[in-house]
Design a protein around this nucleic acid. Structure first.
Lengths: 209, 209
DNA sequence: CTGTTTTTGTACTTGATCGCATAAAAAACT
DNA sequence: AGTTTTTTATGCGATCAAGTACAAAAACAG
């Protein structure tokens, strides 16, 4: 049974009492708690309940409340960009690609078990941003990265003849990002997924002429 | 001196000890506190400090924390729409009008004394929305109203020949609202006013062809 | 089986938050 | 001047939040 490599369960236990919870899933559960009620609206007891870990274990594993939140925020961006990059790289026309990106985002925004939670960043980080430079920077960096991804795709479309030669990739990218922000805000304010898909389609049809 | 009508200071005092603070300005100051740190991140003591009123007076004047917030939210929408309607009604070309609307919004988003606070709704109400139907509805209603205002303006532009006959006013209105949401989100995440004005101009130029 | 190591679980301390009860103050009415 | 009315101001008590100390548990090593 000595399987050696990989992260198998038989990986030679570290030494002391084994962890009762996987750090990765616990962080996701903590993120979901923040996602529902925001940074300030979520107590460590809430996170403790969401993860099943007690406070001392939380602290040992992730640090204090702020540390947990920042880790959750980084993890969220990572997962979201992974999904979106898959959509960007999936081939197809400009319009098809854009819709795939928005569908990827909507699949996250509507992934809550009981409630619709929209975008984690827009729904929770934006509130803290003015008073928390670290969170503000993490939010802004993600937005800029998405801007750049959209712009690259529009440039590609222009050189491929999918767009007029006089189209402005930067302007279109900002509109594409704006559409994403709008989906994020509206999902959290109660719009349905089908309504937002239609919104995205209308936006795409304008952007692709 | 018996001036009769109007809200003059000589309006015949109500009876008991006079109020030390004007309810209107106190509500604005309370709103600013919420605006900075969000609903959950703001305590009644914070509001007390911001208004100069003590907690019992706050409660007597506005109700509990939730009541204060809802009043502040309603007041915010009212002020914002007043400014925007002025922009909508100011005449000028479609592009000029849209830029006036965005400038009106930016003047609010950047009105903070020391910090940039963005949009009150996007920055604070959106966080609470999933768990608070009343706040969610207030946010959604405002968004829909803005959608309708934009759509009316695009329809007007189309019938005036400012837009192609095959332009879709609803689609353009959603993009115009999306641009507004993007300004709101980005202001709070650290973008400068000049950067956002440029963003708005690029968006306008695409929407007006 | 005994000791070591690491994590879990409980409980305590300190401080923040909220609502309310009660006293003091400021004005008009009589 | 005294009474009534309305607001301001102080302070108490209960609850919640966050951090931490300490004991119990669960594994391995010898």
């Amino acid at each position: 049974m000595r399987s050696s490599t990989k992260t198998a369960k038989t990986e030679k236990r570290p030494r002391g009492r084994p962890r009762a919870y996987e750090p990765e899933t616990a962080l996701r559960q903590a993120a979901e708690a923040f996602w529902k009620t925001g940074y300030s609206g979520t107590s460590l007891d809430d996170i403790s309940a969401a993860t099943g870990m007690n406070r001392p274990s939380l602290r040992a594993a992730f640090g204090d409340k702020h540390d947990i939140y920042v880790k959750a925020l980084n993890d969220y961006w990572e997962r979201k960009f992974e999904l979106m990059h898959k959509a960007f790289a999936s081939g197809g026309s400009l319009a098809e690609t854009l819709m795939k990106v928005y569908d990827a985002a909507l699949s996250i925004y509507f992934s809550g078990d009981d409630q619709v939670l929209g975008c984690f960043v827009v729904g929770t980080a934006i509130t803290e941003a003015p008073g928390d430079p670290q969170i503000q920077k993490l939010a802004a960096d993600g937005f800029r990265k998405l801007d750049a991804d959209f712009e690259a795709r529009f440039k590609l479309a222009r050189s491929a003849g999918e767009l007029n030669a006089d189209a402005d990739p930067k302007a279109l990218a900002l509109l594409a990002s704006a559409t994403m922000h709008s989906l994020a805000v509206r999902a959290r304010s109660g719009s349905s997924k089908t309504e937002l898909r239609k919104l995205a389609q209308k936006a795409v049809s304008v952007m692709c002429e």
